[in-house]
Design a protein around this nucleic acid. Structure first.
Length: 423
DNA sequence: GATTGGCACAGCTTGGGATA
DNA sequence: TATCCCAAGCTGTGCCAATC
């Protein structure tokens, strides 16, 4: 029994209910698709007004700075801010983006809308159907969006005024998400500056002395000391060198459990241990775990353990447990700071495409050391900034959930919008 | 025998380019 | 112009020789 005023239509592998007066159009009837092409020449930096960014997958995903190409490059396929682009090949195939000006890479496609469909409405429809494209990709080594399935996808199409209103509502949630993102980024920047200030100048000092930390000379408060990691720790220990499994007795921390200076329990692997071994490698609250082997960029990452429950750690991590001279949060913040980062970078031994920092070298790293009470104050200030970042990140997750729910309901007409109101 | 330290290697991702 | 194979680079993991 179909709900009154609604009809059943097939969208990808599923049947959906949409309002009777909505039309259904095949994607190929409402867009013109053009695959990207690698420009003839790419540049590392912008060359005045004559350059446009090269939109690689990594750049779109926010993992990389853009390369640039000339506006006059014959090979480029250009996309404008109000056009939709879709990752066509590779692991992220099916993902869509809007709001970029630039030249497309060969693994992407530009989607231009015909007049009777609102491009932002179509963007949200494609985003809502991302899983269809992802689950229908073809190709043996590299997945691709399946062209036929893409072209023949049915798009529920309300009157244009309603499309515009739906796009406007979803876009306003997107703007709130962007605003929250900006607050998070600004708070992270503020934390960087605060760390630099507090970890070298301390709180309320007027007299300073010059000291050597690594290759640099810096000023620290007159009564602070310089200690090595060895002098501030009671335990520096390698983890377990055994195979891990998807299921098992104890969760084991690996190099992908670091997040913003903390250990997180996602994703986990597991290991079975007898009681003696477990006690030996059990992570305690306040323990700092340090990534000793990886690429040059990732070696030296560290995080403090603050979770409840029983965890152990892998052989490519080193555990640091502070003694009574040192607050573990303070040491963790210091090891995550810019100054410590450059020291760790200088002591890392470079192998074939990998770098290592062994426990002996880690123990020799110098740490500016205030009295323990001041260490705790500094750590407390930085923790409060971390708490603000976490609060904003949680708010962002809520907004994303709200958007997901609205997309489901608005894009199928389950909730109708009032088109009499201004959009 | 236990611990440390380095790296080989598997698996994954990206982008270039050959081919249809 | 689209598809998809392949090489290169990167990341994560487990192994094993060296050292204690």
């Amino acid at each position: 029994m179909v709900k009154e005023g609604y009809k059943e239509v097939r969208v990808g592998p599923k049947t959906k209910l949409i309002p009777e007066e909505w039309k259904v159009k095949k994607l190929k009837k409402v867009i013109k698709k053009r695959k990207g092409k690698r420009p003839n020449k790419l540049f590392d930096s912008k060359n005045g007004e004559n350059s446009i960014p090269y939109l690689s997958v990594n750049y779109l995903r926010g993992n990389d700075f853009p390369e640039w190409c000339s506006k006059n490059d014959d090979n480029k396929v250009e996309v404008k801010e109000n056009e939709i682009l879709m990752i066509w090949d590779g692991s992220y195939s099916g993902n869509v983006f809007m709001g970029f000006n630039g030249a497309l890479s060969s693994t992407m496609a530009r989607l231009k809308c015909e007049d009777d469909i609102n491009n932002q409405y179509l963007f949200y429809q494609l985003r809502n159907n991302f899983k269809i494209f992802q689950s229908t990709t073809i190709g043996t080594s590299v997945p691709h969006v399946a062209g036929k399935i893409f072209e023949n996808l049915n798009i529920p199409t309300p009157p244009k005024r309603e499309q515009k209103k739906i796009a406007s509502i979803l876009s306003s949630v997107d703007k709130s998400i962007e605003k929250t993102d900006k607050v998070i980024e600004e708070t992270k920047e503020m934390k960087k500056g605060l760390m630099q200030e507090l970890l070298t100048k301390g709180i309320g000092h007027s007299e300073f002395k010059e000291v050597r930390i690594g290759a640099k000379r810096i000023e620290i408060p007159k009564h602070w000391e310089i200690s090595t990691v060895n002098e501030l720790t009671s335990k520096v220990q390698y983890g377990i060198s055994d195979k891990m499994y998807l299921e098992g007795q104890y969760p084991i921390f690996r190099m992908n459990n670091f997040y913003r200076g903390y250990m997180i329990d996602e994703p986990m692997k597991y290991i079975d241990l007898d009681d003696t071994e477990f006690e030996k490698y059990k992570v305690k609250k306040g323990d700092i775990l340090f990534n000793r082997t990886n690429s040059v960029d990732l070696v030296g990452k560290n995080g403090i353990f603050t979770l409840e429950g029983d965890y152990v750690f892998a052989s490519y991590l080193i555990r640091l447990r502070t003694n009574d001279k040192c607050d573990s949060y303070y040491l963790n913040y210091y090891l995550n700071s810019y100054n410590a980062g450059s020291i760790l970078d200088s002591i890392a031994t470079r192998g074939a495409s990998q770098a290592n920092i062994n426990a002996k070298n880690l123990k020799s790293v110098d740490v500016p050391t205030p009295p323990i009470q001041e260490q705790k104050k500094i750590a407390s200030i930085l923790s409060s900034v971390d708490a603000k970042i976490q609060k904003e990140e949680e708010y962002k997750v809520k907004l994303e959930q709200l958007k997901k729910g609205l997309m489901q309901k608005l894009l199928t007409g389950e909730i109708r919008v009032n088109t009499e109101m201004e959009v």
